[in-house]
């Protein structure tokens, strides 16, 4: 469990980091919290020649809340997401979801940027960011650009990020309405068997807006647009939530692993999604 040799860089600005990435192309990788990257390096499943540590770049850190607009630096750790009271007041679903990621030791180092940029379908943050309709800001040799979280993921570990780009921040508007992030896992530290995030905005029993996203139920996060349109403008009741659940499960496409076969995962997805929908509705 020893990685192959690599050169280690610790730049103090985004420009310097981008310039190293430009020099080495796909031989270079940035490292944030390292919880996904280091194990695959140690197992020599990936061969990285140039490793760029982003931890010294101050401008990548911090949570900025201005009115209803929230911007989170890519190197903000999960423990900061949990403990920031203003963030909890404006987007409480983030704390609820973050507390279900791994364990406290991992969350002390794990970052939001690493979690969303790696493209691992088992990570919780990509689904959460699709739920919040977040926008990712990327910095590369050709300057800055923005990509919607709902358009960022092409497949497991394949994203819209170019080899010379670094994800620098994530922004979204404060969600309105009830929320829930529900996850079933085998043990502390495990990835989801199935997880779902829900936001429901309900006025006088009528759903004015909704968002639903799933984690680890396909090779990318799943944004459940069909269920969302099914709910929007309708009177919410148990029956409609069941139909929406069914639609979400149909959009999922899990694979079998040690957590269980596909049939089981789809069944549990239905339970988890329905629980999330009901809790979000109760909170709306």
């Amino acid at each position: 469990m020893i990685p192959s040799a690599f050169t280690f860089y610790k730049p103090d600005s985004i420009e310097k980091a981008v310039s190293i990435m430009k020099d080495f192309g796909d031989e270079a990788r940035v490292i944030a919290g390292g919880h996904s990257l280091i194990p695959v390096m140690k197992q020599r499943l990936t061969d990285i020649k140039h490793l760029i540590d982003l931890s010294a770049i101050e401008e990548l850190k911090g949570i900025n809340i201005s009115g209803k607009s929230i911007t989170i630096g890519a190197m903000t750790t999960q423990v900061e997401l949990i403990t920031n009271e203003n963030l909890f007041k404006t987007a409480p679903v983030i704390r609820e979801a973050s507390l279900q990621i791994a364990d406290p030791q991992v969350r002390n180092l794990g970052t939001i940027g690493g979690n969303v940029a790696n493209g691992d379908p088992a990570n919780d943050m990509p689904g959460l960011m699709q739920l919040l309709d977040a926008t990712y800001k990327l910095s590369g040799t050709n300057g800055l650009r923005e990509v919607k979280a709902r358009e960022f993921y092409d497949g497991a570990y394949f994203t819209a990020r170019e080899d010379d780009e670094i994800l620098i921040s994530i922004s979204f508007d404060a969600p309105i309405g009830g929320y829930a992030y529900e996850k079933q896992k085998r043990k502390i530290g495990d990835y989801a068997t199935a997880a779902a995030g829900v936001i429901l905005n309900v006025d006088n029993g009528v759903c004015s807006s909704a968002s639903i996203a799933l984690t680890n139920l396909s090779d990318t996060p799943v944004y459940c647009d069909e269920a969302v349109s099914m709910l929007t403008g309708k009177n919410i009741d148990d029956n409609l939530l069941s139909q929406a659940t069914k639609s979400c499960v149909e959009q999922s496409d899990p694979v079998a692993d040690q957590r269980g076969p596909v049939e089981f995962k789809k069944y549990v997805a239905g339970i988890v999604i329905n629980k999330a929908l009901k809790r979000a509705f109760e909170r709306s």
Binding site: Q184, R186, G260, F264, Y267, V268
Partner: peptide, 11 residues
Amino acid sequence: HDHWRVWKIAK
């Protein structure tokens, strides 16, 4: 008796 095997019993 992990989650999926217990689920399978019920199923």
